[in-house]
Amino acid sequence: HNLTITQGKLFFHYNPKLCLSEIHKMEEVSGTKGRQERNDIALKTNGDQASCENELLKFSYIRTSFDKILLRWEPYWPPDFRDLLGFMLFYKEAPYQNVTEFDGQDACGSNSWTVVDIDPPLRSNDPKSQNHPGWLMRGLKPWTQYAIFVKTLVTFSDERRTYGAKSDIIYVQTDATNPSVPLDPISVSNSSSQIILKWKPPSDPNGNITHYLVFWERQAEDSELFELDYCLKGLKLPSRTWSPPFESEDSQKHNQSEYEDSAGECCSCPKTDSQILKELEESSFRKTFEDYLHNVVFVPRKTSSGTGAEDPRPSRKRRSLGDVGNVTVAVPTVAAFPNTSSTSVPTSPEEHRPFEKVVNKESLVISGLRHFTGYRIELQACNQDTPEERCSVAAYVSARTMPEAKADDIVGPVTHEIFENNVVHLMWQEPKEPNGLIVLYEVSYRRYGDEELHLCVSRKHFALERGCRLRGLSPGNYSVRIRATSLAGNGSWTEPTYFYVTDYLDVPSNIA
């Protein structure tokens, strides 16, 4: 807008934040220059609390790290170098490059900038070799853009010569660093050979998330399962459950009422301010606690030095998902009996873990797994792929695949051998790939016309006998059925096997 004052003059007093240069501009645009008398524009009460600059400061050096910015700028000295009290560095987070010096300023003089007072450097006698002032900004957020400017702080001049310097606002972004852990990993099994893994992005990506790394490792069953005799009275049979499938998407929606109208769909109840505040506090606490764990609990591995020492970490090797089922080394339970199943799973520490690289999504279907087997899954978020990966501390989750139908069934015939004193040795093959492992066998036998009897055969007993022995049988026709019990439950009964026990007292003698 054009402003013209045809008559009258300007009068400025007691404006401590208004620089004289701005008042002189007002004289020019209003056409009143030359009308004012000496005392109409006070030299001592206008701009006496402001830094009124008329020179431009330029930054000469900028260096960044993930949490620091090192700045240096060209030296500046007023005509009387004693008038320079120091520099004021202003900075704040700036997602967009549209910041002005006066953003967030209120009537009390406060604003949204963080201000650092910096002492002037030592003055050199040689004007050509003056030290460049600077400042190291610490405690910054990774991968965050900051708006920065600097200006001088000078003393009051009796001659009211307006001098000083100020830089333009520059924008500097800190470097990326390792992201925080992925949030809320959930693993479920939808079949006997697959596990579905879902997660949420890290709360602090500290860069642009480029991919996720998912490692999985087959877990050995508890050692007590191999040692305890679950045929003993009072000892509860062990059981394991597989990871249940995901709930429906509708039930997972946030901010939804727990109660549904019987007449149909209901609208979600909005969260109160107290609920939102509580969630923010919980989120802040979780982030602080995660940072504490990362800094205190997890110790970084030592990389190899120039002395030739090897990095103890196993090298990563990509495998196809079809090879995942046989990740671990199978060892027989008892070496003397080769027909026992290889369900003991000690994992070799030198073995390469299978892994998958996930790009542009937060889910993965891990296939080719062994049925009813526990897996430990390790999830890392990465925001750099080359020249070397920059990934987060791992988040861990466990899951067990679903049982395989008929995996616990005894394959092959049940054979028998009759000894003296009416002892019958029953023999059968253990299931080759049971659900988890076989903890015991149930032997059901009966003599024709009598009630059915049951015998429990422990895992250890089966390994020693290759089956079991029935003792003290009365003469007669017998039928026997056997079924295995694994961590997933009972298998199917075998087809009945028949044998006849004679009275050993009636056996004919070869003595003449």
Rank of each mutant, 00 (worst) to 15 (best):
T210I: 03
E388F: 04
E404L: 05
S363P: 11
L455T: 09
S274R: 11
S223H: 07
V397L: 10
V345K: 09
L455Y: 11
T502A: 15
L505R: 06
V423I: 10
D503E: 07
T343H: 09
P431H: 03
Q275L: 06
L235D: 04
T303E: 11
V324Y: 02
Q219F: 11
R471N: 05
G489A: 08
S257H: 06
E465W: 15
H211Y: 14
A395V: 13
G467F: 08
P508K: 04
R481K: 14
D229P: 08
A309T: 05
K236F: 04
G325W: 14
T272W: 09
L277M: 15
P403T: 05
E451K: 04
Y498V: 13
E404R: 13
G207T: 00
N206F: 03
G476W: 00
H294G: 04
T288N: 04
E249K: 13
S223C: 08
S444Y: 14
P205H: 02
C468D: 01
V501D: 03
T497C: 15
K236I: 11
T340Q: 08
Y448L: 07
Y375K: 01
V324F: 09
R390M: 04
T303A: 10
R471L: 04
V329S: 07
K302R: 07
V324P: 05
R471V: 03
F246T: 10
A381R: 00
R286K: 07
E465K: 05
Y448T: 14
W428K: 01
S262Y: 10
T494P: 02
V296I: 07
G476N: 01
D222I: 11
S486L: 01
L225W: 11
Y259M: 10
V365S: 08
E451H: 02
H416P: 05
F355S: 11
F462N: 07
F499L: 10
A405F: 15
L228P: 14
L440D: 05
L237V: 07
P403K: 02
E265Y: 11
Y504K: 13
L505A: 10
V359P: 09
E404P: 11
R318S: 08
N208W: 15
D408A: 04
R286G: 03
E420G: 15
Q380F: 15
G234R: 05
L426F: 10
L470E: 01
L440H: 14
E258S: 10
Y478A: 01
H416N: 14
V397K: 15
Y259L: 04
N490S: 06
N208H: 05
S341P: 07
P434Q: 04
G234Q: 06
K317F: 11
F215V: 11
